[in-house]
Design a protein around this nucleic acid. Sequence first.
DNA 1: GTGAAAGCGCTAACAG
DNA 2: CTGTTAGCGCTTTCAC
Lengths: 338, 338
Amino acid sequence: MKNSISIKDISKQAGVSIATVSRIINKNGRYSEETEKRVMDIIKANNYVPNMVAKGLRTQKMKNVGIIVPDITNEFFMKLVYEIEKNLFKEGYETFLCNTDEDEEQERKRVHMMAMQNVCSLIYVSGGVSDLQDAIRDLPTVFIDRVPDEALGNYCTVESDNIQGGYLATKELLDCGCHNILLMTSRKKISGYVERFEGYVKALLREGLEAADIHVVYLEQLNYDAAYKEMVRMLDEGSFSYDGIFATSDWLAIGCYKALTERGYRIPQDVKLVGYDDISVTAFNGVPITTIHQQVDEMGARVVEQLLSIMRQEKVEQDVIKVPVYLVPRESTRGKTE
Amino acid sequence: MKNSISIKDISKQAGVSIATVSRIINKNGRYSEETEKRVMDIIKANNYVPNMVAKGLRTQKMKNVGIIVPDITNEFFMKLVYEIEKNLFKEGYETFLCNTDEDEEQERKRVHMMAMQNVCSLIYVSGGVSDLQDAIRDLPTVFIDRVPDEALGNYCTVESDNIQGGYLATKELLDCGCHNILLMTSRKKISGYVERFEGYVKALLREGLEAADIHVVYLEQLNYDAAYKEMVRMLDEGSFSYDGIFATSDWLAIGCYKALTERGYRIPQDVKLVGYDDISVTAFNGVPITTIHQQVDEMGARVVEQLLSIMRQEKVEQDVIKVPVYLVPRESTRGKTE
DNA sequence: GTGAAAGCGCTAACAG
DNA sequence: CTGTTAGCGCTTTCAC
């Protein structure tokens, strides 16, 4: 790689052995202050940068972690990655970013590549992690919005308090007088989404509603297009008769909004709508959309903190870290449905 | 790293030398079909994955490239990264993602880290690349939206036809009858932005306007907050007297929109507005915003294609690849200003 | 406090 | 067609 200078060159110039230079670089002690200074000066003068690849080969550990994200064009995920990258970089780690497009095959391939690159740990954002146990085993891993089914090696989960989130979202709709609330969520059993569902049910039941009042529509993909199409389908076949929708992510809410308004429904007068994540488009949307705010900065910080602690082999006290959420009320739930 | 099996283990099991295994893995020829089959079977059976770090140390080349982006939470950049990652991954490259927050210090640090990680090339999105010549030298680099001032080693630029973009945006405003058009852009001399400015001037002059009709406001940072604050400042001190604004990026346009509407200005009746990039928030915004569409998929594909060609030492015929843009007319320029 | 030497997993001459 | 060997740049015993 480039005409870069190595530890050997430094040692030669300094008139010491490479072992000594290595010790000095890593501050491992067992060298005199005098040699230290001499060597450090030469290092600076030559603008030496350590070769992490060689170091990685020797130590069997690269200082880089892989981040697997279902959709890197989604602002919510990237705000999370932003925080993670920032905190990880501070600790000297580089991050590989992998987009899976919510596709298990892609995911498998990419995790495989990560393994080849000897990443020292993995961060998994609400993904499938289907049959990856083998590849992941022994690799410190933090999951976001997803508690793996089987116990893996060293892992931990960080997520929002999704039950509370689902509860708050549904409660908001109920408080607006909605009686027929549709939940739109993912077909996949991602724990974060399952919990939002749980919160929805909890709010319904508390309000004295019954099992018959639970209405759910499942989506194959968690994105705008899928939500829009499903909504259009329901509207066109006349199977839509709700006065409130809780969409488990903001892009789903936007998809619903688009389909509804295109067909002449007014929001919030005819249908009230709540999203989840608090990405900026909900604030700027034609009718600003009420949503559940996830504290991405807090989440990102906790993810890195947990990851480091697992890597240091420290005992991780909690397997699941919960971060609080709060409701952001906007136009889409303004007014009272009677 | 993990209990992974090595080429040595494979060779032992197959009863051949490690050199032969290496040749087979890399399809370098000079082995019989028979041994190939035997070795491949063992590789599969043991679920062997090559150690890229060792390979990288030996060959002095890691198959991973660094991507430097000013703001990873911006959908435009990430759509670009999405395409780049996809295409690069197909070719067996992994990507490091670095966020600079438009901060030169951050940028320096991160490029430095990339060098330590022995990335085989760099992709630079509209960044500063101030005094990085040293670090970058000899590293194949593709710039997006930025033509470096000084000639570096092996580089190339991919960008939208920004002059045309600036022209189309301004032309749209002129066609709506605007006479007093403000350009909002970056203080930094990023070539992509300088060219949008050029297009703006070109449209103005063609329409018979003069130097006195050129009005520009420069921003220190290229984001929503900066645009919003600057707009508020102008509005509050009464120095705003325009009937049209061309904001050189969508988030700037959204910032202007917010400030203007908060103060009672109507868009498009009082002020017409055009953005740049075509990120989704412009389509969903209260008043959908006219913008210039950049073909990110095309750009991403060209970036990877150029990068690979530079790495293969092939002659790069053009130093600057231009990708066409087009106008997406929306509400914010509807109607005629008389 | 310092140095010699082994070796991480792999590739690439070179010899056969 | 196949094997032997010498490192890539670095860390880490183990002597001195």
